[in-house]
């Protein structure tokens, strides 16, 4: 019972921290770190959902007494989600490098304002 409470509370805490860092912070690096935190929250929640009372890791070992195993599907899903998150993070960092080089700032709001101004300028 206690374990479940701790796991759920930490997952939700991570989710909220991530949302805060993305929505309320202006620095692009903080936004991206927020994404990483948010993702770990989602992954932790998924793993917690797959836990079975008294279960052990879903790997068959010779000579082991057969007992309940935890649900293997969320573990597989989390593995997939981690790799997806890594790929997105790498692309985000590459883009941040170029934004910094071209705009000289990583302030999300300032970048957005300049972007809007540029799209208003006549291009022909």
């Amino acid at each position: 019972m206690m374990t479940g409470l701790i796991l759920h509370a930490s997952a939700i805490g991570l989710l909220l921290t991530g949302i805060y860092a993305i929505a309320a912070r202006r620095h692009l690096m903080r936004n991206i770190l927020g994404l990483a935190v948010l993702e770990s929250g989602a992954n932790l929640l998924l793993v917690a959902i797959g836990y079975r009372q008294g279960g052990h890791a879903p790997i068959l070992v010779a000579g082991q007494t057969p007992g309940p195993m935890v649900d293997p599907i969320p573990q597989a899903l989390v593995l997939t989600a981690i790799v997806i998150g890594f790929g997105v993070l790498a692309l985000a960092l590459a883009l941040v490098v170029r934004v910094k080089e071209n705009y000289g700032t990583l302030d999300n709001r300032e970048v957005a304002e300049r972007l809007r101004a540029e799209s208003r300028e006549a291009r022909s």
Binding site: I59, L60, P72, A76, T80
Partner: peptide, 15 residues
């Protein structure tokens, strides 16, 4: 033997 592997490459290989 590793059931997570069985899912990752078998049941959910497309993922």
């Amino acid at each position: 033997d590793n059931i997570v592997t069985a899912i990752l490459l078998g049941y959910r290989g497309l993922d």
